[in-house]
């Protein structure tokens, strides 16, 4: 059905994009690769270390390996928890959002507000909000008798970061789902009415299939963002208590800047990056499969 012409002059169209992103991407990556295979005794003396950093990293028996492993699973668990809450919640709220009238504009602005706040401010807001002395959230939870303490209880810290992420990013799922829903022509709903379909049938047979593409994008973006989360936990819990909320990015930062352990940090960066590449590739394949199945 789609008959795109082959036109290699199209490369001219993508050259600007290529140039900009290459500059921002390849050179830094090369630097990281460089560091990941060298060791330093400080002050610019490097010598070749081969793949030693990588072997240490991926071996849970070493301290660095164990630490990496922990951070990795911690982050994956976090991503999963956030996705399981945000995607259904986002879709449900998009279904409830107003379609007509003055309420649409106001709703969109309010919904989008959490996403428009610089991430350190988000951290700051919740830093205060979770305190039991001056914050509504903290006071309310302690008020109903929970042992809530963000800085000292690991469970509190974990749960808080999840709540923050849900508060912060469900709007992205809502906006994408809402836009996807609005793109469905009215005729589909009309036909479903004529066919006597129930509300659930309309959701499963019309709305959900037509939301496939935006949902793949939403899930991919959300997974990546939760996987890379840095600022909010850094500001609110500092990675603690202990290492309860030390996710991969925070750990990486600590190793690289804190301990000036460039080799380890670089290796970790690359493995981290490779994981994101793999997930990306999986989603990309899903997306192109969806694309292909939509054609004749």
């Amino acid at each position: 059905m789609i008959d795109k012409p082959v036109n290699n002059r199209a490369w001219f169209f993508v050259l600007p994009v290529l140039g900009v992103v290459l500059f921002s991407s390849i050179i830094p990556v090369m630097t990281v690769v460089n560091y990941s295979v060298q060791d330093t005794m400080g002050a610019n003396s490097f010598f070749w270390n081969g793949d030693q950093w990588f072997r240490d990293l991926l071996n849970p028996a070493t301290t660095i390996g164990a630490r990496f492993n922990d951070a990795l699973f911690r982050t994956l668990g976090f991503s999963l928890a956030c996705l399981l809450i945000e995607v259904p919640l986002g879709i449900a709220l998009a279904l409830c959002a107003p379609r007509k009238g003055w309420a649409v504009g106001i709703s969109l602005v309010i919904i989008a507000l959490p996403m428009l706040i610089p991430w350190n401010v988000v951290g700051t807001i919740w830093q205060i909000f979770t305190r039991e002395d001056i914050g509504l959230f903290g006071a309310a939870l302690v008020g109903i008798g929970l042992h809530y303490n963000v800085t000292q209880e690991p469970i509190s810290a974990w749960m808080t970061i999840v709540v923050i992420d849900v508060w912060h990013w469900t709007p992205l799922v809502i906006l994408l789902s809402y836009a996807g829903l609005r793109a469905i022509p009215d005729a589909y709903y009309q036909a479903a009415r004529i066919d006597g379909a129930s509300r659930w049938a309309v959701f499963f047979n019309i709305e959900l299939p037509k939301l496939q593409k935006v949902l793949v994008i939403a899930v991919l973006l959300r997974f990546m963002q939760t996987f890379m989360i840095y600022t909010e936990p850094f500001v609110v819990t500092g990675g603690g208590p202990g290492s309860a909320t030390t996710f991969l990015s925070i750990d990486l930062d600590k190793i690289a800047l804190g301990q000036v352990d460039l080799g380890n940090a670089a290796a970790m960066s690359l493995v981290y990056y490779l994981i994101t590449l793999t997930v990306c590739w999986i989603f990309f394949t899903i997306m192109t499969q969806l694309e292909r199945r939509g054609d004749v």
Partner: peptide, 26 residues
């Protein structure tokens, strides 16, 4: 009544038979 629109309105996830059966199933 039945209505046919300007563009085909079908249920993407179903087979042809399931599409035709849908109003009766409901």
């Amino acid at each position: 009544i039945a209505q046919v629109f300007q563009f085909p309105v079908i249920y993407d996830t179903m087979t042809v038979a399931e599409n035709l059966a849908f109003p009766l199933k409901n």
